[in-house]
Design a binder for these strands. Sequence first.
DNA 1: TGGAGTCTCCCAGCCAGCGGAAGCCCCGGG
DNA 2: CCCGGGGCTTCCGCTGGCTGGGAGACTCCA
Lengths: 258, 258
Amino acid sequence: MAGGSAERGRSVTSRALAILDAFDASAPRLSLSEIAERSGTPLTTAHRLLAELTGWGALSRRADGRYEIGRKLWDLGLLAPVSLELRQVAAPFLLDVHTATRDTVHLAVRDGTSALYVERISGRESVPVVSQVGSRLPLHATGVGKVLLAAAPDDVVAEALAAPVRATRHTVVDPGRLRRELGEVRRRGWARTAEEMSLGTLSVAVPVRVERAGSTVVAAALGIVVPSHRRDLPRLVPVLEVAARGIGRALARTPPFR
Amino acid sequence: MAGGSAERGRSVTSRALAILDAFDASAPRLSLSEIAERSGTPLTTAHRLLAELTGWGALSRRADGRYEIGRKLWDLGLLAPVSLELRQVAAPFLLDVHTATRDTVHLAVRDGTSALYVERISGRESVPVVSQVGSRLPLHATGVGKVLLAAAPDDVVAEALAAPVRATRHTVVDPGRLRRELGEVRRRGWARTAEEMSLGTLSVAVPVRVERAGSTVVAAALGIVVPSHRRDLPRLVPVLEVAARGIGRALARTPPFR
DNA sequence: TGGAGTCTCCCAGCCAGCGGAAGCCCCGGG
DNA sequence: CCCGGGGCTTCCGCTGGCTGGGAGACTCCA
């Protein structure tokens, strides 16, 4: 940038983006000094950029002086492909599954070595779960994650199994056993977990396959979470499969989303 | 910016933001030249800024060379207050209403002189409606809009009634009649529309009131859309009211969201 | 093979951005 | 009441990153 910049090689835009980067789920509201600190930007510079970002609507300023994400970024975020097509197409099907089961239903896609939760339907009577729309959980410890991992290229599998995090005492972290599980998921077409991410819950998940130009890809995973006392998990698989096929067919009719 | 800029007084950041502004619901995927054109940026400059935005993850580039909103902006968008608190708190209640009625349920807030649809639940058997999450519709022609307008300050009412758009032949555009309707909405506590936004649908809506620090504000509106042949609209009001009270109480327990 | 349309790379000039310093405001403690 | 301190805002002279026309690469189509 121009002027007596202390740290060269950092563009104006990258600084503005670094300021946006200061916000995350654990810190959705920040003061000027927090933003300057978190983004590694001098206070004055942060102040100037914040004024510009706020003026445009990327951020907005609260009565208490703190900044938060503004409407404009919310609007833009809704245009992301993950939201635009996948979610909108899938939402009614998730609703069907939820209506039939009353449990928490999830739709996730793979984002690197994480399962990214794209949509979620959860009633008040469903078990409380950690995931929210937008959250990322490890691939090896969740139902949807195992489905996505089973369909992932080898290098992703290798990376995901390199150092699997142990979330509970039931989390499977042995690479050999995980590989065998993935084989089984591929063979039978669905995955299950038992208290591997959080105690007290089980989950099952199936792939959402999309056929396009003759080849089939796993575009997402559809999963359901139930309290661990429930013993009817396999019964849920056909329900998920019907919905997953419906989503897959609907996606095949829309323009490619990735 | 530095350098031989043709148009002075335009900051680097503002150009980067103008590029983001090129994207909207009607144009979620754009080529370099389209972006340059829509943002009023020279092609070369757009190209450079796009590289930076893409590198950060604000945008991503598709196989066909076009740009689209990236994951990072989606993530950030989810941190917006409208999404963070209101939606998450309200979602289960909307689900309850949908479960009880099978119709399309909406949650909207007022954004200037528009109703901003914040959450929506719609099954496959519900009537097709124009609104989506993120869309903005006029306040005078929708159920949720009338509720929000009835609670809005006088200057907003005046602006909204200055030149009301006629969406269908049933849209009420006479300011006098609209004012009388708003009075009625305030008195009886709910609003209705009959084919005013789109033909073939009726809607009812109630306010979501939040009590905070002794005073009550209308934070949002909860509405339902049904096909016009249905004659049981008033029956739905109590259902909406129960859910709206639930949302209001839940919101009162969370930190203020605006 | 030619031509139009689109994208990528290059670079010299120059002004917009940089950020330290100083001032302001608010709050709490003595 | 005064004082100290933390957080925010404004000011301003120096300078190096930004600008954008131009040239070349690439793609698609006739």
